[in-house]
Simulated assay, not measured.
Amino acid sequence: MGAVIGALGRLVVPGKQKMGCLLTIAIGIVAALLGTWVAGLLGVSQTAGIDWIQLAFQVGFAAVGVVIVAGVTDRHG
């Protein structure tokens, strides 16, 4: 799931990001956990089937993570 969320996060961010698969998966895992937690706090993770709101939170967190990591790696190497 982390790979899917991380890949979707990279697709949302414009431009090319210089990061590997493992970093993308790690960002996706963290984003999935954060998105699930925030959706639970807001009470929107109680739906049957695919929870599109929770998925939007997860992809949003992944996009933010990609921007942060890509910005740090662009400056340092």
Rank of each mutant, 00 (worst) to 15 (best):
M19K: 05
D51C: 07
V12R: 04
G43T: 00
L34Y: 03
I5H: 00
L55H: 04
G2V: 13
G35I: 13
A32N: 08
A26K: 08
R75Q: 09
A31P: 07
M19V: 05
V30W: 00
A39Y: 01
I68P: 01
L41W: 00
D74S: 13
L23H: 02
Q54M: 13
A62H: 08
V12I: 14
G43Q: 05
F57T: 14
A7T: 10
G43V: 06
Q46E: 09
H76C: 10
V69T: 12
V67D: 04
G35H: 08
T36W: 12
Q46W: 11
I53E: 03
G71A: 10
L8H: 11
G40L: 07
L41Q: 06
A62Q: 07
W52M: 14
K16E: 06
A56N: 06
H76S: 12
G35A: 00
A48E: 13
H76G: 10
V4W: 03
D74E: 10
D51Y: 02
V38Y: 00
D74P: 03
G40H: 07
V30L: 09
P14F: 00
G15T: 13
A32R: 04
H76W: 15
F61H: 04
L34Q: 02
A48S: 07
T36M: 03
I53T: 13
G60M: 09
A39S: 08
V12K: 12
V72L: 09
V12T: 01
L23F: 00
G9W: 02
A31E: 06
R10W: 12
L22C: 10
R10M: 15
T73M: 11
L42M: 15
I50A: 03
G71L: 10
M1C: 05
T73I: 14
L34W: 05
G15S: 01
A56R: 03
I29G: 02
A7K: 10
G65T: 11
L41G: 14
